[in-house]
Design a binder for these strands. Structure first.
Lengths: 279, 279
DNA sequence: TTGCTCCTCACGTCACGTGAGGTGGC
DNA sequence: TTGCTCCTCACGTCACGTGAGGTGGC
């Protein structure tokens, strides 16, 4: 009679995993395959399905201890559904964060791959966003990290906060003849943050949801003239893609986290311009 | 004079991290903040930006050793871009896998949250998919795991393979009066798999890309009549959402990995029906 | 028989977390 | 001063991986 069950090596291939992983799950009592006289493991359909379950639970972020409680029936339906909802919500955040990291990195790769380091364009549908604006007289004070921290401490200490860089908001038209005075400095407020405190403390501004053109570019300190070139490139891109600018204001975001191989006086920036498709 | 730089606790709040993480990065030489007489750490803008970079690299899946090589300048632009491309590609796979896990789990939660365990519907745009079909005379043989493994070993041993359950393909109309003989058993082939080998070895069938209605339901062994009820529910959903069935064939996928709290004779299934929006 | 696959058991590792014990006004 | 925050150093932990040393024809 031929063998009915599967060997460890076969399970390893089926699930694209390693024998050490299977051994680990067995050691902690998550799997219990049949053990032969010569100590070979044999996995039947039940063990296979159990491993399938272990792997989904792992991908959802459960610990092996939680898995044991869930899979050994030490949990009722209510509790189980609650845990599942928590974990899918966490996964939601993780996924959208990873998508953001991936997209920004791809944009950086695209930009750096070009010989002339010029520009990289993408178009995305964006949610509405809210920004805290700093009073102009506070701008010089932003040179000190401590003042920066103190200025936004209410924001930073709140639950939903995640790390942000300062942004600039200015008028699209001022790109022609850019002066520092035309721009205002701000910081994004996370969704799900209680706005009541914030609105009392800070001046805010919001951008509506819709289609935005992201322009990634390398800015060399003091090279303000490059911004004029930038505008002509943007206009060319808009014309070629049948788009028009749809808002007076433009947001400029610094990406120091992506400037790894850039020189000290250079920085990677993203400009977001609201656009709409021409009819 | 007031303090200019940030304390460890302030960095912890800014980046939503822990002091142990910062200590770890310092221990291995990734961060080197200024150290005061009383051994307090002070972080300036350079350390802050470096931490920003460390965190993106971490999210992209780099090890701390790789981070050191990258951030300490031990790598040129070419190599850097290569590493970045590899990591964003890996992240792509990870993201799409996690999205699949999250969506399926949400569907399971939706279904299990209902009192009557009835049905859960969603509509998704799907890519085209290809299936290997098993000859009808091989079906009884599928009861043995080893034969299952041997039947698909070419497929399983190939690089791109990821774990799959068997699917059923049958005609939408046969849902009225379902007989086992009307269906065929198959297994999905991963994208990017070399089809040349496979097409010679196996009989294949493909489903076109487009809009699919996914119906999740719990099937109790032997309760074939439930399938008739299922059809009437599907028809009601289609009518209510202004949809029509757009293909002769329907795919049925078992989800043993989501059946964790179900009884032994019950299983969680998903039926995918190609639809189009009525004009 | 050889080479390949399976096994065990101890220890290693990666990225932190914990806990005891102590200083200092940041 | 008290309580809070900072520190160090050793050890713990989670989910595996590695490597030495040995069996068996799956």
């Amino acid at each position: 009679m031929t063998r009915q069950k599967l060997l460890k090596s076969e399970i390893v291939q089926l699930f694209n995993t390693t024998k050490e992983t299977l051994r680990h799950y067995e050691n902690i009592g998550l799997l219990s395959p049949e053990i032969d006289d010569n100590l070979y493991r044999f996995y039947d359909i039940n063990e296979l399905n159990r491993l399938r379950q272990i792997i989904v639970l792992r991908d959802l972020g459960f610990s092996t201890l939680d898995m044991k409680r869930i899979l050994n029936g030490g949990i009722d339906k209510e509790a189980y559904l609650g845990m599942m909802k928590d974990h899918t919500r966490l996964l939601d955040h993780k996924i959208s964060h990873l998508i953001k990291v991936r997209d920004e990195t791809n944009q950086m790769i695209d930009l750096m791959s070009k010989d002339d380091f010029s520009l990289s364009f993408t178009i995305h549908e964006k949610h509405s966003r809210e920004y805290i604006l700093v009073n102009p007289f506070e701008i010089p004070v932003m040179d000190s990290l401590k003042t920066y921290y103190d200025t936004f401490s209410t924001l930073i200490k709140s639950e939903a906060y995640s790390e942000k860089t300062l942004i600039s908001i200015f008028k699209y038209n001022s790109l022609d003849n850019f002066e520092k005075e035309d721009s205002r400095i701000g910081i994004e407020i996370d969704k799900g943050m209680s706005l009541s405190d914030i609105n009392n403390t800070y001046e805010t501004m919001s951008l509506t949801c819709g289609l935005y053109l992201s322009v990634f570019y390398v800015f060399k300190e003091g090279q303000m003239n490059d911004l004029k070139n930038l505008k002509s490139h943007v206009e060319a891109y808009l014309a070629a893609n049948n788009l028009t600018v749809n808002s007076e204001y433009v947001v400029e975001i610094e990406h120091p986290e992506l400037s790894i191989l850039l020189a000290d006086h250079e920085g990677l920036y993203e400009m977001q311009i609201k656009v709409s498709v021409c009819k």
